[in-house]
């Protein structure tokens, strides 16, 4: 089974556990790992791709993955995007 690409992805190399994403996500997509004091993505399927977390994160540690169908329908070709810009939009 393929995994679908959507919802926020946290890069733990940069995440400092500030919790802004967990506090603010309108859809309550994030959970909180009490042991590690870090957020995790608990309900990726409920993400509405609003991208608030991505812009809020002071560490720029979150990329919101846009589902393939949305990219193709909106005229975004994944082949034209670098690995980084596919998610961040900073070509």
């Amino acid at each position: 089974m393929f995994n679908l690409n959507y919802g926020p992805k946290i890069d733990y190399k940069y995440c400092n556990g500030c919790g802004d994403c967990y506090d603010n996500c309108p859809m309550d997509v994030f959970g909180w790992d009490e042991e590690k004091q870090m957020p995790f993505v608990a309900y990726a399927g409920e993400c509405s791709i609003c991208c608030f977390c991505e812009t809020l994160c002071p560490q720029v540690a979150i990329d919101v993955l846009i589902p393939l169908h949305q990219m193709l329908d909106f005229g975004i070709a994944p082949t034209k995007l670098s690995k980084k810009s596919r998610f961040l939009g900073d070509e």
Binding site: F52, E54, V64, I66, G89
Partner: peptide, 22 residues
């Protein structure tokens, strides 16, 4: 709008470069 609106336009190449949208 939520940040996604600008992000989508940017990824699509900016409004003037975008493919027509349905």
């Amino acid at each position: 709008e939520p940040p996604k609106a600008l992000k989508f336009h940017k990824l699509a190449g900016g409004l003037t470069n975008e493919r027509p949208v349905e």
